[in-house]
């Protein structure tokens, strides 16, 4: 029983973190209709910003969100404006050109990070890094809990933005039907650029709250890219609620799989669920939540 509970708690906490990654990806996939293979690399850049601020200026990782988020937002807007958007008008045989562009961007980001920071492992240490709460026999890591709580807040904010504001409605409209949205007077170009920026800003926030839990090196990204699109498919493209549910399901599935089946197969569980959902539940959890 104790193990079940601890697995559940661990899975939920990790799942919260996955959820933020997933929301960023689901927005981008929903509106731009591309798989953003530079997702993890943007997370990496944000983590390096956070680390640099902490290491040289002593700024707390949680506070550095206020710097990493805007920086990444503008970086991503530039990427989207100058590298991704021009491809839409270009005639090409495969629609996947934008996806491959994100691969190129990812490679460049990793190599730039490597030439600036070398391949050394970095981590931050704060007063709360090792703080643990004990609920009976269940242990809860404080930084992981902060990441979880933060993801809930962020999700709520995103939900409000998408559901209640004009900007959010435009984004949702663009993600449902780009042509119709354009006809309704929404500039789809602006919306795609903004969405890529917004999605990346979410990852940036994730990077800053994640750094105290984990560590950092130039190749840290790809693992999380894969997690992010597993969540997106699980939750349904473009669905915020779906992404949260997807993140939590993935976190719990991985943890229980690792506890009761095999730790070595941990990363395969998510991929397997992902395939099953792709084939048997196209549209993901969005089919139940509708938003």
């Amino acid at each position: 029983m104790e193990m079940v509970l601890q697995s559940l708690v661990s899975g939920l906490l990790i799942g919260g973190l996955y959820a933020i990654l997933g929301i960023g990806m689901t927005l981008i996939m929903g509106v731009l209709k591309i798989i953003n293979l530079a997702h993890g690399q943007i997370l990496m850049v944000s983590m390096y910003i956070t680390w640099t601020l902490w290491y040289y200026l002593g700024i707390d990782p949680y506070l550095s969100i206020f710097i990493s988020v805007p920086v990444i937002f503008f970086l991503a807007e530039a990427i989207s404006k100058y590298l991704l958007n021009p491809l839409i008008e270009k005639e090409s045989i495969l629609p996947e050109n934008q996806v491959l562009m994100t691969v190129g961007i990812g490679m460049v980001l990793v190599e730039l990070a490597r030439s600036i920071f070398t391949s050394d492992y970095r981590s931050v240490r704060t007063a709360y890094s090792d703080k643990v709460w004990h609920l009976g026999k269940i242990s809860i890591s404080f930084p992981l809990f902060v990441a979880f709580a933060f993801s809930l807040v962020l999700t709520a904010a995103m939900f409000y933005l998408l559901m209640k504001t004009d900007l959010g409605r435009s984004i949702r409209a663009a993600s449902q039907d780009k042509i119709a949205a354009t006809l309704m007077g929404i500039s789809s170009e602006k919306i795609t650029i903004f969405t890529y920026g917004l999605g990346s800003a979410l990852i940036a926030a994730a990077g800053s709250v994640f750094l105290p839990v984990y560590y950092l090196y130039p190749d840290v990204g790809p693992l999380f890219t894969i997690k992010a699109f597993v969540i997106t498919i699980l939750g349904g493209m473009g669905s915020t609620i779906g992404a949260i549910a997807g993140g939590l399901v993935l976190g719990i599935a991985e943890t229980f799989g690792a506890t009761y089946i095999s730790q070595g197969y941990r990363d395969a569980f998510g991929l397997f669920i992902f395939l099953v959902v792709l084939v048997f539940l196209p549209g993901g959890l969005k089919r139940f939540t509708k938003v």
Partner: peptide
């Protein structure tokens, strides 16, 4: 690796 990444970006952007 950096050069190769830049090459990929260049090709996709200018030689679709």
């Amino acid at each position: 690796a950096l050069v190769f990444g830049l090459l990929v970006i260049f090709v996709i952007l200018y030689m679709a």
